[in-house]
Computed example of a mutant assay.
Amino acid sequence: MEQNYTIREFIEKTKQQDKGQGFFELETQRMLEVNLNGQVWAKAGSMISYTGGIKFEREGILEHGLGKFVKKALTGEGSSLMKANGSGKLYLADQGKKITILDLLGESIYINGNDLLAFEPSLEWDIKLMRKIAGMMAGGLFNVRLQGKGMVAFTSHYEPLTLLVEPGKPIFTDPNATVAWSGNLSPEFVTDVQLKTFFGRGSGESVQMKFSGEGFVVVQPFEEVYAADNQS
């Protein structure tokens, strides 16, 4: 239902509010506020506004060592990060996608490289390639493993759904709809020829991720198609 506002009513309804949630704060479901006093890593290009004294720096080529640089060269621009340093409020968003904040307490999690929005520098991280499916689907060839104590924010198209993986009951997902999974799981990739026949050669349904063991998988109700240069 359409609703009209006076300017004062509009400002009151949409103005920034301090909710006291800590380092990461959901200003809205699709906008992340970082209460910065130091450093944070964020997806390159995700900054939409900031206040205070904050400087932005593109991730250095060899900042995290040669091994990660080689992986980043293989995965393409989708995994590019920027570093924000200083003190102030930083606002991040990614194409209007819904944002979820997790506070890791020593656990580990894998997040699709395209869905990782921001994380605290206290977390250890590494890029994991999924080269086995190169040439079989459009993108989604890498993910990021984060571990330790600190906050991480990831995005999803619409509301995410978490599926519990139990021993003897594997879960199959479409790679283009898979957002994250617990750090103890190692997915296999399987090809379903029948689905390929039904949906066509370019469909992601022909390649599935199989999760076995005990843990969780986060999926979104959307098949995300990535840029072609992420397949190189």
Rank of each mutant, 00 (worst) to 15 (best):
K169S: 11
V34Y: 00
L185Q: 10
A177C: 07
G200E: 10
I127K: 02
F222K: 09
A180N: 05
P160H: 06
K97L: 07
G202H: 15
I99W: 04
V217R: 00
N37I: 12
T14S: 15
E205K: 12
K169M: 13
S49L: 12
P221D: 03
G88A: 04
I111R: 09
E27I: 11
A73Y: 08
G113N: 03
E188Q: 14
K72F: 01
G150L: 11
Q208L: 15
Q208R: 14
I133L: 09
E57H: 13
I171W: 14
M1V: 15
D126C: 07
E124T: 15
K72G: 09
F189D: 10
G86F: 07
E159S: 12
I101Y: 01
E124D: 13
S80I: 11
G20D: 02
E27T: 13
E205H: 09
P187D: 04
T197I: 01
T100Y: 07
E214M: 10
L66M: 06
F10P: 11
G215Y: 06
F119Y: 03
E33P: 00
F211H: 08
R30W: 06
L32Q: 05
T28A: 08
V179G: 10
D18C: 02
Q147H: 06
R145F: 07
V179R: 06
A118N: 04
N112V: 02
S49T: 14
G202L: 13
G38Q: 04
M130I: 11
T162G: 07
V165H: 12
G76D: 01
E166A: 07
G204F: 01
G86S: 09
T162V: 10
I127L: 12
G96P: 03
S186C: 05
F198N: 06
V34N: 01
T173I: 14
I109F: 09
G52P: 12
F69L: 14
G78D: 07
G140A: 12
G168V: 04
T197V: 06
E223I: 08
Q220D: 10
T14P: 02
I99K: 04
T197S: 10
W181R: 06
T155A: 03
L116T: 08
M1R: 13
Q231L: 00
E33Y: 02
S80L: 12
Q208T: 11
E33M: 08
D174C: 08
S49D: 13
G22A: 07
A42E: 05
K89R: 15
A44Y: 13
N85L: 08
R30L: 06
D174T: 10
L141D: 03
N37P: 05
G88L: 07
G53Q: 06
S87Y: 13
M82N: 02
G139M: 05
R145H: 14
G52I: 12
A153K: 01
K132Y: 09
A73D: 00
F216Y: 12
Q194P: 02
T14W: 09
E27G: 10
I61E: 08
L164I: 12
L92G: 11
L32Y: 01
M130Y: 07
E9R: 11
W125L: 01
E214Y: 01
G67Q: 09
T155W: 00
T6C: 00
G86E: 15
G204I: 05
A138P: 05
I7R: 09
W125Y: 11
